[in-house]
Amino acid sequence: MDKKILVIIPCYNEEDNIVNTVENLRATCPEVDFLVVNDCSTDSSAALLKSRHYPFLDLPVNLGIGGGVQCGYLYAVRHGYDVAVQMDGDGQHDPAYLMKVVQPVLDGVYDMCIGSRFIKKEGFQTSFMRRVGIRWLSGMIRLLCGKRVLDVTSGFRATNLAMTAYFAQHYATDYPEPEAILAASLAGFRVGEAPVIMRERQGGVSSIHSFKSAYYMIKVSLALIIDRLSIRKVKGGRA
Rank of each mutant, 00 (worst) to 15 (best):
D151I: 09
A96E: 11
I141H: 05
K147E: 12
V101G: 02
L143I: 04
L48A: 04
C71G: 00
N20G: 14
C145Q: 03
I18C: 04
M217G: 01
Q169E: 15
Y81R: 01
T173N: 08
A180W: 10
G89A: 05
C11R: 00
R117A: 12
Q202T: 11
I18D: 06
M163L: 11
I119S: 04
S221R: 08
V102A: 02
I218Y: 11
T164A: 03
V32T: 07
R157H: 14
G203E: 09
D16R: 10
V105P: 07
T173S: 13
G155A: 09
V196G: 08
L161E: 13
T159C: 14
G204H: 03
A76R: 10
G155M: 08
G68C: 08
S41E: 06
S185T: 15
L49N: 07
C40N: 08
I134C: 02
G108A: 06
R117C: 05
L182Q: 03
I231V: 15
L6W: 08
A194F: 06
I226C: 06
V152F: 09
H170Y: 12
F128D: 12
A46Q: 12
I5W: 02
P195H: 05
N13T: 03
N160R: 07
G89L: 01
V102M: 02
R142C: 12
H170T: 05
R201D: 03
N160A: 07
P178A: 03
E200G: 12
K120E: 15
S185N: 13
D90N: 14
R201N: 11
K100S: 14
S51R: 15
Y81T: 01
P95K: 01
L106G: 03
G188A: 09
E31D: 15
F34V: 09
M217P: 00
S154M: 07
T126P: 00
R190D: 07
E179P: 00
M198I: 15
G108V: 08
G203K: 04
R148G: 00
S185D: 11
G68P: 05
S44Q: 06
L222N: 04
S230H: 11
L150R: 13
C145Y: 05
G203N: 07
D111I: 09
P178V: 05
V37I: 15
L186Q: 14
Y175R: 09
R130F: 14
A76M: 10
I114N: 01
K233D: 04
L57T: 01
L186S: 10
D90Q: 02
A223P: 00
I18M: 06
G66K: 08
Y54I: 09
E31A: 14
V109T: 15
S116C: 11
L6D: 06
N24W: 10
V205K: 13
V102L: 01
S45W: 01
P10W: 08
G115S: 06
P10K: 03
L98R: 02
A180I: 12
S206V: 05
A172E: 14
M99D: 01
I225V: 15
C11I: 07
C145W: 05
K121R: 15
C40R: 15
G72N: 10
S154R: 04
G236K: 04
M129P: 00
G146Y: 02
P176S: 03
A194Q: 04
D111P: 09
I18T: 03
A194M: 07
R232E: 11
E177H: 10
R142Q: 13
L222W: 13
A162K: 15
P60V: 10
S44I: 04
R238W: 04
E177A: 08
C145E: 03
E15I: 04
N38M: 06
L161W: 08
